[in-house]
Structures are given as structure tokens and as C-alpha cells.
Design a protein around this nucleic acid. Sequence first.
DNA 1: CGACACCTTGACCAACGTCAAATCCGGTGG
DNA 2: CCACCGGATTTGACGTTGGTCAAGGTGTCG
Lengths: 248, 248
Amino acid sequence: MANLRPALPRPSPSFDLAGRCGACAIRELSICSVLSANELDLLCTIISTINFEPGHTIITEGEPAGDLFNVIRGSVRLYKLLTDGRRQVTGFLFPGDFLGIALNDTYAYSAEAIEPVQLCRFPRRKLEALLAELPRLERKLLGTTAHELAAAQEQIVLLGRKSAKERLASFLVLLSDRALKRRQPASPVDIPMTRTDIADYLGLTTETVSRTLTQMRQEKVIATIQRNRIDILDPGGLIELAGGTIGN
Amino acid sequence: MANLRPALPRPSPSFDLAGRCGACAIRELSICSVLSANELDLLCTIISTINFEPGHTIITEGEPAGDLFNVIRGSVRLYKLLTDGRRQVTGFLFPGDFLGIALNDTYAYSAEAIEPVQLCRFPRRKLEALLAELPRLERKLLGTTAHELAAAQEQIVLLGRKSAKERLASFLVLLSDRALKRRQPASPVDIPMTRTDIADYLGLTTETVSRTLTQMRQEKVIATIQRNRIDILDPGGLIELAGGTIGN
DNA sequence: CGACACCTTGACCAACGTCAAATCCGGTGG
DNA sequence: CCACCGGATTTGACGTTGGTCAAGGTGTCG
């Protein structure tokens, strides 16, 4: 069960000023979607963008939470480590997603770039100061947090009560749905994360992930295109396999 | 793995008007702790109290979310059901805890009384209308939701990566810590929920819960006092067993 | 005192983990 | 362009944790 892994290199980010929020490609997907042009100009004054290469650490669990982020490009894994090195991936972020929600003094989890990532950075103190003037943003933040809480509870059901096959099916359905929300096709699904990431997200091992995908391939529910792209041949069957909750 | 169970009786609640929030025994533990006397009076106008007997349903996953609640007395289990009847308990509530956080149109999970429960009820529409006038309450709600999100992520780590023994140890530590927050002793811990509830919370079976508790009893880490009270003989050992994350 | 629900214990089993060995594949250098 | 390298993935053989099934035990409430 142990899952020790080497320390990853510290970030060597490249900075630059964000310029115009108005031109932001992911604005409509992000928390900024609730802001008027004027409000956007206000928010615009406190942000900057920052890039990370694959494998580099964006935030670290337990460290002072100085900044919050929006993902502009690329993908991110969130995870927590047990003291003996076992890792649990708690989620993945894609363009439009918000990072750093725990409004505490320290980050509640770590985040690393999976692919090359571009982030929009909000200094926490400045953002909090602005919230008083941007009530819609605060409300949106509450909605986003509540949404993440609901997603975490779905993940709790998955980890507590689903079989390996149900977990994989749920995972693929999730990726497909989220791709749709970003206006990407639901079916050939990009899988930017490694099997290890998937295993650590689903509470399994890479071997079980691999075997289960093979099985689903043999059953013609999915087809693998290259290593990191999966074609969903039978969406209905996949959803069936995923075994949803009463509410869905 | 299936976990079918009979439908529980519908609530036969007893209503009564709450009267004075000022006299509320759990105000300092609850979201209301951030309100001034005047603000409290305002909130006071929209609430009522409601009681539930053990086993009765307070809210149901998927139904329209009409009300939010504060727990005044007793304890509550939150859970989600898979379509085939498997159950995952997502959390337990005690006095001071807030219920119904998903600010959606429908409840994201079900809730049942474990012990006789007294709740303070907020009609959702009225509460949302008040939020504009009670910015501190809205901020508190965001903090509470973020806190619940962090708790859910801890639970994800537990379910994804911890052994049965680590899960039980974590659970006892959690109950003990939460008792402390309610100003109750950390050590003989009350266990109002059944073994089935615990199993469904920890992603285990009642048999495994029972065997693991027996083992911990034999190792003198805990002692059982009656059936629903556990004495923590070796708090350090228990915390050790629980195997925390880097951040804690 | 009996019924019933809950809990504990035991014997056995299977899903998934562990360990080990291919195999694949993209990147690199000749 | 092709051989090689190294990490990622797949596959196989086997082990273990925790689940399943079944049989008592225990406490509570009428």
C-alpha cells in the first residue's frame, strides 16, 4: 500500500502581468463569469499570470496560503500525503477551475502541474479585501465551494462503496462530462494524468487500473487511442457501470 | 457489498416557534456565533424549531431543498445511497453543526436522526434573502463550507488509502476532537451511532468494525464502556494509529 | 421472561494488492 | 532513419486484507 516517491523539483515559474481580463479565454468558465466589465477591471488590478512545467509544485499542503489561482491552460493534480508517503489524489483541475479554496491560513492540500499549466494568480489578502466590494464574487465563491463539496461527497461514495470497475467507469464519465463543460467533445477523452495518478485518485493500484481498463476494452465499452486518449464506445453502458447515486 | 435496508418511517415532527435566539444553548458553536444581538433578532424572525425521533428522515437526497438547519440537540447521520441500495454515510452531525449546505435546488444527501434530535430550521428562500443584509453570516457560511470541504478531503484520504485499523483510529480521534469542541470530555467518547453506521461511514462492514475494535481493546488502546461509549486509554497511540496527513 | 435488534466471533472466500517480468513508446543520439 | 534508453504500462503469479455467510451472544424494552 505504501506509495513512496521522490521529492519533486521546486517551481521555476515564469511571471508576467496579466493585462486584460477582458481577453481571458476561460472567463466564462471561471468564477469571474459573474463579474461586470467594471468589476472585472477592479479584479484585474490585483492579478498576474504564472506558468508551471509538468511535475512542478504549485502549492504545498500545510504551507501558508498566500495565493489563490484560476487554471487558464493545462491540468493540475491535487493530493494529500500520509506521513509514510502514501498519496491520495483528491482531484484534478482543468481550465476554468479554481485552486486554493480553503480560506484558511494554510493550504489543505498540494497541487502539481500535470501538463504545462498557465494560472491566473490572486494574492489572497488583496482578493479578500476586494470581496467586500464584489458581493457577487463572494456569492460565486460560496457556490463554487458548495459545488466542490458535493463533488467530494461523490468521491467519498466512490471510495467507500464502489468496486474497481465502477470506479474506473465513474472516472471516465467524470472526465467526459468535464470535457463537455469546457466545450470539448465528450468522446475521445484526453487522459493527461498517469496511471499512478488515476490509481491514487481512485484508491487503487496502477495494476488494477490497467487490468480494469483492459477488461473494459475487451468488453468493447471503451477503446484506447494512443496511451492518453480513450474513446467511449458505449456511453450508456459506461454510465450503467458507474452506478450512480439516487440523486443523479 | 450490497447493503439493502428497509424504507424508514417518514418524519412525524413536532413543531414549535423558536422564540429567543438569545437563549440558544448552541449559539456560540453555530454559524450564529458571528451575529450581533440586532442581527440575531433579524434572523430570529424566520426560524422555528423541529424535533425528530431516532431513525426518522430529516431531509432526502434529490428532493427540493426547502430548509436549512442547525442541530441544537442530538446527533444526525448524513448518507448517500447507490441505486442498488449500498449506503455511504458521508458524515455525522452534532449540536452546533449546520445541515443542508449544498446551496442547490435539491439536497445532495439524506439525513436521519440517530438520537432524538432538535433542529433550528431556516427556510432557504428567507435565509438567502437575509444574507444580503447579513454579510458576516454569508462569510461565515463560506468558512463553514470550506471547513466541510476540508473534512470531506480528509475522509477521502481515509477511504482511499487507510487500513481498517487506521480508519477506526481516525474515527475515534475525530469523535473525541469534536466532543472537545462541544466542551465535552475528550475521553470517554459517546458513540451514538450503530456499528452499521460506522461501517458505512468508514467504507467497511460491521464485522470488520467489530473485529478491529476488539483488537484495539486487546491492545489496550481503548476500553469499551457499555456498548456505546469508548474510553481512550492511549490517546497518543490512537493518534499514531490514525496516521495523519502531512498537514496535520 | 421473551422477542428483537445489535453486536461479536468464526470459517471461508474473493477482490484487489504485491512482486516480478515483459512490453510499449517517446525521446535521444549516432 | 534507426538503435537504444528509461519511464510508463501491461500482464502474470501469488498473497492478504477485508468481505461474506453463518452462528452465537448481549442488552433492552415490552
